[in-house]
Amino acid sequence: MLELRLVQGSLLKKVLEAIRELVNDANFDCSATGFSLQAMDSSHVALVALLLRSEGFEHYRCDRNISMGMSLNNMAKMLRCAGNDDIITVKGDDGSDTVTFMFESPTQDKISDFEMKLMDIDSEHLGIPEAEYHAIVRMPSAEFARICKDLSSIGDTVVISVTKEGVKFSTKGDIGTANIVCRQNSSVDKPEEATTVEMNEPVSLTFALRYMNSFTKATPLSNQVTISLSNELPVVVEYKIAEMGYVRFYLAPKIEE
């Protein structure tokens, strides 16, 4: 038996919108820790890891670990029927091939339930070691989204370079080149507008912009994004989900042969 009640149902709606462009079908894993997911995109270049901790739910009952295979597009279709202020409850029974989403309006005058068919998904779970990153950049998520969008109109790849000066995003294409440098500005009044750069070693890595743009679908989840980089390792682009957990995107770099 599984029953997860999320008062801020809009968070689940935003999570789905954040990941469904990258991944079509995925297993949602439910345990005492929380509601989680790990899935790769179809070309195995990017990976998404989601965690919504059990403490973040108003009510969290998960009698034993279960894994529910869902089409994210179908799940998004159902969650789009929930109002932004609705409370969302996810219900499942052991051995059942369906999951139920219940939506309650804040005034309790409208209660809907949507039952969705589950699917069998063979998924490969990857072990991601804890790593010390050479550089960690924190910046406003909207700024990062803007940069990825702007650069993708000029080139297909972005070079992210971190130096003591700040973080530089560069691209080149048929029409020319572009460089955007963001400097630290941690003295700004509003913490959500700050850009901070922690650097142990200079880093320069090349990534496909198509994936970066896909990650920025998570922008509504968090005012800030954290970009963790190490030379010749996948980048981690993390959006924290207020007091509940995170969506992390891992993207393999393009490496000189």
Binding site: M40, H44, E124, L126, G127, P234, A252, K254, E257
Partner: peptide, 14 residues
């Protein structure tokens, strides 16, 4: 020329 690596090159399956 840079080659797009797969995420599978970096992380082991569990």
């Amino acid at each position: 020329n840079r080659r797009q690596f797969s995420i599978l090159v970096f992380y082991a399956m569990t």
